Amino acid sequence: MVSHDEFEQANARAEKRKRQEPSAVFARYDKRIHRLVIGLSSGIEVAFPPHSAEGLERAKPADLDLIEISPSGLGLHFPKLDADLYLPALLEGFLGSRQWMAAKLGKHGGSVKSAAKTVAAQKNGRLGGRPRKPAIAGS
């Protein structure tokens, strides 16, 4: 059970965080520009294509016409998708968690072709290519 003091301390931390970080004051999907638009308490508006955000990759415009803002202003909920975005993580990780963004960037980086990658692959091939994986006993 949480004590009264712990509850008050948690509320104080939440208030401090609210003052230090921007919170959402409105959120809407703009069909004209195909962007999710979030208005922040700092006066800044952030707009991005929904498919760029974790959890909204396959969202259709009709899925985005209802967006709920949490009482703290730090969360966005999309009831039709049962998806949630946490605003600090969204802003910090550029539209997704660090792990999700790293995976997206890694996938993109691995598919990039360049002269340097071609030369490195050719050099590796002359050395015998990738080392063989050790055989597992019993397979």
Rank of each mutant, 00 (worst) to 15 (best):
Gln9Lys: 15
Gln9Gly: 00
Arg13Ile: 04
Ala14Asp: 08
Lys16Trp: 03
Arg19Lys: 13
Ala24Ser: 10
Phe26Tyr: 15
Phe26Cys: 05
Tyr29Asp: 01
Ile33His: 09
Arg35Val: 01
Leu36Asn: 01
Ile38Gln: 08
Ser41Trp: 02
Ser42Met: 06
Phe48Asp: 02
Phe48Ser: 04
Pro50Ile: 05
His51Tyr: 12
Leu56Ala: 06
Leu56Cys: 03
Leu56Ser: 02
Arg58Asn: 13
Ala62Tyr: 00
Asp63Ala: 06
Leu64Met: 02
Asp65Ala: 05
Leu66Tyr: 00
Ile69Trp: 10
Pro71Asn: 07
Ser72Asn: 11
Gly73Thr: 01
Gly73His: 08
Leu74Phe: 15
Phe78Leu: 01
Pro79Ser: 11
Lys80Ser: 13
Lys80Thr: 06
Lys80Tyr: 08
Asp82Ser: 14
Tyr86Phe: 14
Leu87Thr: 03
Pro88Glu: 08
Ala89Arg: 11
Ala89Leu: 11
Ala89Ile: 03
Leu91Phe: 06
Leu91Gln: 08
Phe94His: 12
Gly96Glu: 03
Gly96Thr: 09
Ser97Ala: 04
Arg98Ala: 10
Gln99Thr: 10
Leu105Val: 12
Gly110Glu: 09
Ala115His: 11
Ala116Asp: 13
Lys117Trp: 01
Thr118Tyr: 08
Val119Tyr: 07
Ala121Leu: 12
Ala121Tyr: 07
Gln122Thr: 05
Gln122Glu: 14
Leu127Cys: 11
Gly128Lys: 06
Gly129Ile: 07
Gly129Glu: 05
Pro131His: 14
Pro134His: 12
Ala135Glu: 14
Ile136Asp: 00
Gly138Trp: 03
